[in-house]
Write a protein that binds this DNA or RNA. Structure first.
Lengths: 206, 206
DNA sequence: ATATTGTTTGACCAATTGGTCAAGAACACG
DNA sequence: CGTGTTCTTGACCAATTGGTCAAACAATAT
């Protein structure tokens, strides 16, 4: 029986293993070629399976892509959720930045998958952006604004502060080729962390 | 006679007009769908020409894309070239940031074309990155480092400073959909300019 | 063992798409 | 005008690619 996109309650060991293999292969290929640039043959190749076998586990190219995107926004926003009214403001914002930078280092494929989707106008994620994303950012921006007003951090536009964290950290995953070309191939992350630490210290200091 | 990619010494008025129309249409389509996501039919449509007519002026899809990329890196790096040893350091860096932000506002298609190319691993631009780009950045980074050492600006890693300018400004063009979704559709640029001005003031202050 | 269910694939389609070509339409110019 | 050149396009190809299907091949349960 064809079970397609239904939850992750896979029946057999084989199903579990193969869906994981396929999703990992698809993440690889989609992230480096974009949705339309990726072919089922490439994904099948990368997964070490035949194309019809791929389509035994997923209804189609769109379904694979959709499943990858489904969890992505959530994963991506998770660090932002941890920001709360109780803990130290500056420390939390620095930590958020650090976690995002860490994600660029350890999950570059996910970052590029996301970047590809946004670059193309987010045709399969628009809802998530103006719904889940906006709601969460609005809430955290209000919190940051309060900190600003109370003099706990410098006066900054909370929205652009959040954008700057996204831009600065994701840049190292999304523009990796360019960064490494300029640095002559050296690992950018140690330098990036030091730079961003100092930068955000200065930005937020009252 | 087929004149293809040869310089821009077009013969007739018609050739001049049509090559321009095609390149503009191609910029539009490539920037919003990526190289492989774009089709000749879409470009022809956008240009108001037939597909064979497109191919009368350009040798193929690659040739159109190549011609667009050819000038792009140059245009993109132009503001950086203006940084010199004579004028005021902080003022120049602020100006560079402002010009890059301005380019994100007025040339978002070019920014996205560039982003697309880098995201895919820069298959058609690698040489430019490790050649022209690296050389220029190395030179300007040395200059910035000197300013740092002389106490004319704060102590900052010049490479990551440059990366931060790219990341922060291009983000508003490349992630436009996301930014506008969060802001509820409002124009991000006025706020961005104010935010980035303050940010770079603080970053560079001795 | 054997029937049942789950998995895999070679052989095929139909649609899309980059590109060709010959012939017609528009244009330049003596 | 007339004629050679430039421009334009409808009709086609061949290759790629997302997707199907029946038949073969494993696993598992009884």
């Amino acid at each position: 029986m064809h079970n397609g996109k239904s939850g992750n309650l896979r029946k057999t060991r084989i199903q579990q293993r193969n869906t994981e293999t396929i999703l990992d292969a698809a993440l690889q290929v989609f992230s480096e070629r974009g949705f339309r640039g990726a072919t089922l043959d490439q994904i099948a190749d990368q997964a070490g399976l035949s194309k019809p076998n791929l389509l035994y586990y997923f209804k189609g190219k769109d379904a694979i892509h959709a499943e990858l995107l489904a969890g992505l926004l959530d994963t991506w926003l998770d660090p932002l959720r941890n920001i709360n009214a109780e803990d130290d403001p500056k420390e939390q914002l620095l930590n958020y930045m650090r976690r995002k930078l860490e994600m660029s280092r350890t999950l570059p494929r996910e970052s590029r998958l996301f970047a590809n989707e946004i670059l193309q106008g987010a045709p399969r994620m628009k809802d998530g952006l103006s719904g889940e994303l906006k709601t969460l950012v609005d809430a955290k921006a209000a919190l940051i604004r309060a900190w600003s007003d109370q003099g706990k951090i410098a006066k900054v536009d909370p929205y652009h502060l959040i954008f700057s964290i996204w831009a600065l950290t994701q840049h190292y995953a999304d523009f990796d080729v360019q960064v490494r070309a300029v640095l002559g191939g050296a690992d950018p992350f140690p330098g990036a962390e030091a730079f961003l630490d100092t930068l955000f210290e200065k930005m937020l200091a009252v």
